[in-house]
Design a protein around this nucleic acid. Structure first.
Length: 573
RNA sequence: GACUCGGUAGCUCAGCAGGUAGAGCACAACACUUUUAAUGUUGGGGUCCUGGGUUCGAGCCCCAGCCGAGUCACCA
């Protein structure tokens, strides 16, 4: 089963142990420097500043030169070359440590710690001359070997997406640019948090397991709580809980929330994703637009050395505030020449036909308008643009427009043809909110299984009074894609969802279970006999005694076996 | 869900009329005291995704399935 190289590494492991070297020591390894500290701060005039350094990391390449050897050591900050000299490592006649351990048993992928001094080789490369080294962890599997030549050309890159996503740990080790994306992702979140905190808004946590999945239109995951004996849903959004907190008197609350939606997966959808939502009392959507453009300017500067420009594909996108505002009807008029503002459902349906947009009978006004906008307008907005004033049917949680009851005070921020943020003057009129929910209920009876449930507790909260509030939601994964130039969501999630892998070498506990052996005895039987066949080659009385013996030895509380039970294991298949 | 493409050594890939599987890197052995995609010589390494079928013979052709990628549909 094991490959040749895996067997060789296991052999190396044995040899190390025979030589008295612990391949997996428990001791702390004190590190004084990281690779980039040395590369950035070493000066040829002042080599004594790096006369004694200690580093730890993974071996990434080996170049053996007889009595000298050059390896690359990679730590969290980068790679540095290290140099072993035989007679330095082995001052006496016994050259084993160099000839055997350094040359043969340190493999690419192993973690070692080194102590030595920094110098520059004849080739001009900064290098750590190793005095002593310590095994920190032996790698039993070979890493993919990715080489970069003098021209910066990458050879034999580890590129298969399936393997990269399934074994992200390997991807991160051998593809340094992958790590950069995730570091940027974290910085984006940090910059947002800084910005919100600078206003004094409070970061909060709200339930993931919800009895009613509210705040968005999406199919939820469902699970079951045993003690309460009720179904619970994994949240599709946290909106309704954050608004309850505004009712409770907080002036600004926000949460970075994992949301879950039981829908299709593709390069822009993962079943779990991160949404940031923020709610601020006494504000409206105009205020929120300014807040949003300033936020994004702040974030792009924070991750971009102060620049607001981001290169995405062939577009340079500039996040410098302010961004243009255009109403939804205007946008549709601009790109289709059609004014849909007064249309009813039938007229909209006709307009869709006229524009060659596919529609289904379940689609109400909201979905029809959304289809026209999504199809004909959205792709045209490359630079950040606020689309404002959405039709009322599309936005059941949004306040009616102050000048036009057919519209709502809502905006979406479109960048590179995609929605990146969604915000409202939040609906705080409890009677209006109840009507909107009921409208949604009618939609769901029509067959739209994504229409919202009615959340009576949320309505009760509104009846106690919610101040006027502006709310904003931003998809963190998609924002990260945009700001890191990635076209697929899998590239900005450490562990994107995939079909489970089939392991051919999976432990075969089921063969024991098949033979009728109770689950609590299987580990003991495996320990005592290894395989089912071995066990069956013995007499039932022997098996009975050995297993009960093990039980006693391990002081287990499971009931002792009866001989009759054990005998039954020998007859079943 | 539909269509297209892919799955061969640890990694990246090649393979042909259907005739016992190939390269580079990696690995092993030897040489080499400053190399850098180190080099030279020699060598080992394969369930060609799985299961059926056609055939004297299948990595290759046919059927079914699994996994992934892309496009579309659905979906925020």
């Amino acid at each position: 089963m094991l490959s040749e190289q895996e067997l060789q590494r296991r052999e190396s492991l044995k040899k190390l142990i025979e030589l008295g070297i612990n391949p997996y020591p428990a001791d702390e390894y004190p590190v004084t420097h990281h690779a980039t500290d040395i590369l950035q701060h070493f000066s040829d005039d002042q080599p004594q500043e790096f006369a004694s350094v200690s580093l730890a990391g993974r071996i990434m390449s080996k170049r053996l030169m007889g009595k000298a050897a050059f390896f690359d050591l990679k730590d969290a900050t980068g790679k540095i070359q290290i140099y072993f000299q035989r007679d330095q490592i082995c001052p006496t006649d016994d050259k084993t440590l160099y000839n055997e351990v350094v040359k043969k048993h340190i493999d690419i992928g192993d973690f070692i710690g080194i102590k030595g001094y920094v110098f520059r080789t004849q080739m001009g490369e900064l290098t750590v001359h190793v005095h002593t080294f310590t095994f920190l962890s032996k790698a039993l599997r070979p890493l993919p070997i990715v080489k970069v030549d003098a021209q910066g050309q990458v050879h034999d890159a580890f590129t298969d997406p399936e393997q990269r996503y399934r074994m992200r740990y390997v991807d991160l080790v051998v593809n340094p640019h992958v790590k950069d994306i995730f570091i940027k992702r974290t910085r984006i979140i940090q910059a947002m948090r800084e910005y919100f905190n600078s206003f004094g808004y409070l970061e909060v946590e709200t339930p993931i397991l919800q009895p009613i999945p509210g705040g968005a239109t999406a199919r939820p995951f469902i699970t079951h709580h045993n003690a309460l004996d009720i179904p619970l849903y994994l949240r599709i959004a946290n909106e309704l809980y954050l608004k309850r907190l505004i009712v409770g008197g907080f002036e600004g609350v926000y949460e970075f929330a994992k949301n879950f939606r039981n829908e299709g997966m593709d390069r822009t959808h993962n079943p779990e994703f991160t949404g940031m939502e923020i709610y601020v009392a006494y504000k409206d959507y105009h205020w929120m637009m300014q807040f949003t453009e300033n936020l994004l300017e702040h974030v792009t500067k924070a991750i971009n050395n102060g620049s607001t420009q981001v290169l995405f594909g062939k577009h340079t996108i500039d996040f410098k505030a302010p961004y243009p505002r255009i109403t939804m009807y205007e946008a549709i008029r601009r790109y289709t020449g059609i004014d849909i503002s007064g249309m009813d459902e039938d007229q909209l349906r006709q307009t869709c036909h006229q524009l060659h947009i596919d529609v289904t009978p379940e689609m109400g006004k909201a979905k029809l308008i959304d289809a026209i906008f999504g199809e004909k307008c959205e792709p045209h907005f490359i630079q950040p643009t606020f689309i404002i004033d959405y039709p009322i049917e599309m936005s059941p949680l949004c306040k009616k427009h102050r000048h036009d009851p057919q519209l709502t005070e809502r905006f979406e921020l479109i960048v590179n043809g995609k929605e990146i943020a969604n915000a409202y003057s939040e609906l705080n009129d409890p009677l209006d909110q109840r009507q909107r929910f009921e409208e949604q209920l009618r939609l769901s009876q029509r067959g739209d299984d994504e229409a919202m449930f009615i959340d009576h507790d949320f309505l009760r909260a509104l009846e106690y009074g919610m101040p006027p509030t502006a709310g904003l939601g931003i998809g963190i994964d998609r924002l990260t894609m945009l700001l890191t130039g990635q076209t697929s969501i899998q590239e900005v999630l450490f562990f994107p969802q995939m079909k489970p892998e089939q392991f051919t070498t999976a432990p075969k506990t089921d063969t024991w279970a098949h033979a009728g052996i109770p689950a609590e005895w299987i580990p003991l039987a495996q320990e005592a006999f290894g395989s089912l066949d071995t066990m069956r080659s013995l007499k039932p009385t022997q098996v009975h005694q050995q297993l009960n013996g093990l039980r006693k030895k391990k002081k287990l509380t499971i009931p002792a076996l009866q001989l009759s039970e054990v005998e039954a294991w020998f007859t079943q298949n």
